[in-house]
Nucleic acid binder design. Sequence first.
RNA 1: GCCGAAGUGGCGGAAUGGUAGACGCGCACGACUCAAAAUCGUGUACCAAUGGUGUGUGGGUUCGAGUCCCACCUUCGGUACCA
Length: 957
Amino acid sequence: MEYSPRDIEKKWKTHWKEHEVYKVVNGGERPKYYVLDMFPYPSGAGLHVGHPLGYIASDIFSRFKRMKGFNVLHPMGFDAFGLPAEQYAIETGIHPAVSTAENVVRYRQQLSNLGFSYDWSREVNTSEPEYYRWTQWIFLQLFDHYYDKEADKALPVAPLAERFAQEGNARVQAVCDDDTPTISAGEWNAMQESEQALFLLKYRLTFPEESFVNWCPALRAVLSNDEVKDGVSERGGHPVERKRMKQWSMRITAYADRLLQGLDAIEWPESLKDQQRNWIGRSQGASVKFQLEQDAATFIEVFTTRLDTIFGATFMVLAPEHELVARLTTPAQQAEIETYIHWTAARTEVERMSEVKRVTGAFTGSYCINPFNGEKVPVYIADYVLAGYGTGAVMAVPSGDQRDWNFARHFQLPVVSILDAQKNIEEAADPTKEGRYINSGFINGLSYTEAMPKLTAWLEEKGIGRAKVQYRMRNAIFSRQRYWGEPVPVYWKNGVPYPLDASELPLLLPAVDKYLPTDTGEPPLGRAEGWKYQGLYDYEWSTMPGWAGSSWYWYRYMDPHNEKVFASKEAVDYWQDVDLYVGGSEHAVGHLLYSRFWNHFLHDMGLVPQREYAKKLINQGMIQGIIEYLMLQKDKVNGYSRFVCAGIAAEEQQAGTEFAKIPIHIDYVKEYGMPGSYVNLDSIRQFIEWRPEYGEAIFECSQGIYHKGKFTPKKDVSDSYLLTFSEVGKMSKSKYNVINPDDVIDRYGADCFRMYEMFLGPVEDAKPWSTKGIDGVSKFLRRFWSLFFTEQGAIALSDAAPTKEEMKALHAAIKKVSDDIGRFSFNTCVSAFMVAVNELKRLDCRNKAVLEQMVRLLAPFAPFTAEELWRHLGGAGSVHHAEYPTHDEVWLVEDVINYPISVNGKMRVTEKFPASAQAPELEKAVLELESVKKWIEGKEVRKVIVVPGRMINLVVG
RNA sequence: GCCGAAGUGGCGGAAUGGUAGACGCGCACGACUCAAAAUCGUGUACCAAUGGUGUGUGGGUUCGAGUCCCACCUUCGGUACCA
């Protein structure tokens, strides 16, 4: 019988669906196990070959666990709010809900083609009101709570307000805005209701605040860092500036310590935990106030982790946005400072960060006083100091900090040595903590550990500073000036935000005439006519960011259709948490940190049982694609755009001509994925049809020039051979290099696709997509199949007792595959299957007992093929409900071991000895071997190392 | 700059400190065939070849290092110059 994956897969896909083979119920005898995938954004390009890598791995693991007797929850859904659908809506006028729904249908189709064991009845979609009403509900809870440091958890705001009325806020230990004033009960009670409401915002876990954004006046839009290149918008090339804007924020910093501590309790990759630790960036230090020379009542506050270096602070640097800059600027420095601020406003934070070599800054003309030695310190501004971090001011110690040192050298500021162990500070900064202090007032002669307590004590005694823990993590901005996101369930009355009542949820996205900002630059929701709370008050016009809906979705899968709560207590108590989470490491400090934050909060509320929601996490590597570009000369030639061959571009670049890389759809590229990929005349015409703005462009390669429909050859040729510029990178719709799994599945079948993606290498490694080698996996499946059938197509199996060799091949495979699934090494599982089949083929094995076990073993990897063979074997029910095989060591015991024999660590010969032989007899036997004598002749055998069962090494000399 | 990961045949990759290159692709040869495809079999790290050299480079630990330690180079990913 011929192996026909197409028929088999169609048949079982339908059968599984009709018989609800993957239906999961909450509860039962079996222990629970929850395997979660990071759900996809359903983009218009469809599922690409990179998505399934992690999904296949988690599906294999889920099926394995299920066959091992667990009640496995393995759901799938869609993270369906996002920018691409909105961009598409802007271009076409089609409502994002419509295009998103279409994309979801396609994704679901593609996913079920791959044979995943999802219980589709639990699907979630973050953009549906039934889902996002609970996202809004959690937002309301955050709004209604503050972080109490004494309780070390979130508590309701209402009792806090009562406490203010009783005793003011002086004794309240809560996380709040830095600028929160101390007020008495009298002051609180004297406030109007709206003033009280504004005051409480300083405590709430979500609150509106002014923060900096990338504002593009021409597009009247806020852009992400991604969308800004070289200070201009990626789309259209318009200038972008940093602008303050009122945005909703999440007080994630309240949870900084708990987010750090929680990492110790979870089995996540160490590298990913490190990324989170670095992002949170807890640092212990001190804040110090520097008095202004001109105004003794005003201070510049700095944070430092090296208070011990304060005597070496020879200047001060403020962020250009610092609030004191205007006051500090002297008339003489006015012009210079303004020019610098203007220049810096056009730079994104990413640019400000990545420029290391060039020193920029400007002197304000003013001085402040170093409180430790009373010396005058000049105040500069420079954009390497970021306004959003700490106090936005740095005390510069050039002898100990390289960046400060560079700045000092550039502006010819003094560099004062502070430790006798500092070396060569004329050449570079030396950040050492060794040695004894010099030039350092009352700590002269002390060591670091001796000096620190004295400094801190002095600081607090004089009231000019205090020990402080600082985090580099900032509160998370929670607003997007976009349409396609969850509406924030808040309305505004007299400049004060009021939450909706939970009973008023969901607050539905209103219809708008266009998906663009309003003429006055307000977000698209500002266009919704008559969209007012009780017909009177404007709703919040910004929407929630992409990470809102994904910060709690694993709970919704537990109880997806509940209309009363986000998930019932019974469901949450049963499933508890995620046992295995699979997803990309690119989410390390975004989704994976925010979701932990929300989970800690939900845990504080007593709504979920576990502080950390995912016990174990494995990263899946990115499957990269090749991005193909055409090289476009930046300046037009005689008024025409000019594209040239990559080779020509490289030469002309040497001569100073500038080129831009224009991505081209990979379908138009000949020999895509090969080193010599190129475009011919057909490709050029396709490209022009696709990008009509280049209709009159010149296309030049060594073969000739194409212009306005005519090809003028340089040689005796009839076609263009314009080399593209190829680059390995992300598979992305915007790079036009998305490869769908559909074609591959159509040709080879889903089982083959699944096993091939696993066979590519370790699941966590990144790799470029290629179908080189897929034939090997395809051949394996056909060979596996052929073990069951005669060439005439009849099933031909024997009921005889299996031979020892057959049992050995089987049990070796069971052992290897089970072990390797356990350590998520799926590529070696596939190898093990191949080894087993090669061996069974060699043995001409037709034994039913052996092959039946092999079918079970293969079921998690090739679910369709295994199901078909299982039924041919007369198996009852689905193979996916059968028990997974376990191996028996008895079959793996060797009688004879082929020992490698090394001389001085180099392997020379091998020799067989009985497995029972002990070290002394082995040593004796080895020295008598003819094959060994050659290597030890005339030399003294100093030592013989015998590792029974493994190897023998002779040390001679 | 900082943080993280990775460097092994022509290619994807394998290898609890113990026979480097499993398994697969590709390639070569052979069988079957009129022929091709498919299938099956054999071989396939390199070299000056009874031997020697080989896991990015240079050191080190060890009887023994792809694996452990130190320094460096390259590539990829992340990034908020975090004081």
